[in-house]
Simulated assay, not measured.
Amino acid sequence: MATIYKDGEFVEENWETADAETATAVTGDALVPLSLFLGDAEAYLARDGQTAVLVEAGDDVEPVELYLGRLALVAVDFPSFADGRGFSAARVLREQIGYQGDIRAVGKYILDQVPLARRCGVSSFEIAKPEVLKALKAGEWPEVTKYLQPVGTVDEIPVGTRPWARRSPRDIAVAAE
């Protein structure tokens, strides 16, 4: 069982990760690495249970576009808190491909990255670190209100004369109080 954080709530889900040995024989809900999924996509989609794809760091997400409407979700791996490729994969899925489904962060991200991942299109989080779970349950949300890189997934307001600088509309509400 994995603890999932989505829309401010915690749920328990059970996804079995497929590998080269188990392949399509996985029963129940299966999380399939992208490279393995693309090798036999129709077989994975035809099995009983939901199918989700795991995008690992460095994977090109564009080939999965044909199957997005048939997947339960797309999980994006953050192999290290210092590896930003998960943010890029989420942005490509949301902004370039236009995926509207659930993008789930999995792996070794830290609490400070949760709001930034949301800006990039991540909509749910598999919580692997106890300190992240504890902080989210306590209501901690390390909001960043000023950004130096615009994204197409949230409303933002330009800041001053720097065209790349943005701020969250929540920043104005806080300043007005």
Rank of each mutant, 00 (worst) to 15 (best):
T22W: 01
S123G: 15
L66F: 12
A89R: 01
P33D: 02
L71M: 10
Y147G: 10
G86K: 14
Q50E: 10
A18V: 04
Q96N: 15
Q96K: 15
R70T: 07
E140R: 08
V92S: 14
A46L: 02
L71H: 06
S88Y: 08
A52T: 06
R119H: 01
L73S: 13
Q50W: 09
A41L: 06
A23M: 03
L71P: 09
V53T: 06
F87N: 04
V26H: 04
Q100S: 07
T51V: 08
P79R: 02
K108D: 15
A46K: 09
Y5G: 03
D19W: 00
E156T: 07
Q96E: 15
S123T: 12
F125Y: 07
V114L: 04
G49H: 12
P158R: 02
R47P: 00
S88L: 03
T27C: 01
P150S: 07
P158K: 00
V61Y: 08
D29M: 03
L148E: 15
F37P: 05
D155T: 05
A2W: 11
I4T: 06
L116M: 13
D29Q: 01
D83F: 13
T3P: 05
E56P: 02
D48I: 01
D60T: 04
D40S: 10
D19G: 07
E143I: 13
R167V: 04
A52P: 00
G69E: 08
L116H: 11
A30F: 10
E95K: 06
I127V: 14
V106K: 09
W164H: 07
G86I: 01
L38C: 11
L34E: 03
G84N: 05
E9W: 03
R94S: 13
S124W: 04
F10M: 03
L38I: 10
V154F: 03
V106F: 02
P142R: 06
L54M: 05
T153E: 07
D7V: 01
I157H: 04
L71S: 05
E156K: 01
I172H: 05
K6H: 07
Y44F: 15
A75H: 09
A173F: 13
L66P: 12
G107K: 02
L71V: 09
G121N: 06
T145E: 12
G139A: 05
E140S: 04
F37N: 15
D83L: 00
A41R: 11
D112T: 04
L133Y: 08
I4E: 07
A75T: 00
K146N: 09
Q113K: 12
G86H: 03
A89G: 14
A173C: 09
D60P: 12
V55Q: 06
K6T: 06
I97E: 13
D112H: 01
Y5L: 13
K108V: 10
G98Q: 03
A89V: 01
G28E: 10
L36N: 00
T153N: 11
D29H: 05
A46Y: 00
G98E: 12
A135L: 13
T22H: 01
I4D: 05
D102E: 15
T22K: 04
A2Y: 03
W141D: 07
A43T: 14
Y67G: 02
